[in-house]
């Protein structure tokens, strides 16, 4: 087990010449409200590695969701820039998709239609291929048989499965997850966490990098390969920690506790 706290290590680790998949370069964000300036993100820099499940952990309200939206190109940073494959992100990038905290499903479309909607802009697909892709993703998340059900008829856990299926079908190179388990009850969340890693990160998965934002320390240590711990507002990186634990991870093991203790001590 190695604890890496050297923040600058990964920033500098770009292999010579070839552009990184994702570089976050001195990103800062501040708002000007009517009476004062609100600093949300101070200065954050990191690179994401291929085939890595990454976590961004911070206290509530620390601007981690904003950071995710800046990476997605949904929001512009006030300082610095984000590059995908060496190209500066301006507006939503085609390599990126997101899994949302509250699922972002359309209530007037059934499961299959919700998944297919995200595939619609892929004009190279015939309607038949689109349906096939959607059905495959739906069965991958164990929702086979629920294709024609509407979101209103599904439990929270099933809704988030649809959200995951939509992301799987779209096959983005970078998948962002915004507190994906925090609006589920604990039992459901636990169950879904157990499946999500193997769904997203596998040899034949086209998804290269997953970045999950969370405020739940156990959840992050259970799932990710590497975690960035952010400070409270304005956010800076407090630590960049690799979690070297075999999977599936035993939440009762001493090593697991060592990681969570370490992170808790950083946050307090």
């Amino acid at each position: 087990m190695t604890l890496t706290q050297d923040v600058s290590r990964n920033v500098a680790s770009g292999s010579a010449g070839e552009p990184q998949l994702l570089e976050v370069d001195h990103v800062g964000l501040s708002y000007v409200t009517e009476n004062r300036k609100l600093e949300v993100i101070d200065d954050v820099s990191f690179n994401a590695n291929i085939n890595e499940f990454m976590g961004i952990l911070a206290p509530s309200g620390a601007g981690k969701s904003s950071l995710l939206r800046i990476i997605a190109g949904l929001q512009e940073p006030t300082k610095g820039e984000v590059r995908i494959k060496g190209k500066r992100v301006v507006g939503p990038a085609k390599e990126v998709f997101m899994i949302f905290q509250n699922f972002a499903l359309l209530p007037w479309k059934n499961v299959q239609e919700n998944v297919e909607l995200a595939l619609m802009p892929m004009k190279e697909l015939t309607p038949d291929e689109r349906a096939q892709k959607a059905l495959k993703a739906i069965s991958d998340v164990n929702l086979a048989g629920f294709e024609k059900a509407f979101p209103g008829e599904l439990s929270g856990g099933m809704k988030q499965r649809v959200g995951i299926a939509r992301a799987l079908a779209l096959e983005p190179e970078i998948l962002l997850m915004d507190e994906p388990f925090s609006s589920l009850d604990e039992l459901t969340a636990e169950h879904l966490r157990g499946e999500v890693y193997s769904l997203l990160i596998s040899k034949d998965s086209p998804i290269h990098t997953v970045i999950m934002v969370s405020h739940n320390v156990e959840e992050v240590v259970e799932l990710v390969d590497r975690v960035l711990v952010l400070s409270n507002r304005p956010s800076r990186i407090l630590a960049d920690i690799h979690i070297d634990l075999p999977r599936p991870r035993n939440k009762k093991s001493d090593e697991f506790y060592r990681y969570t203790d370490k992170i808790y001590s950083l946050l307090v």
């Binding site: 939206r69 997605a72 990126v96 909607l117 619609m120």
Partner: peptide, 8 residues
């Protein structure tokens, strides 16, 4: 945001 990222 979903609609934007889906590039509809």
């Amino acid at each position: 945001e979903m609609a934007t990222l889906s590039r509809l």
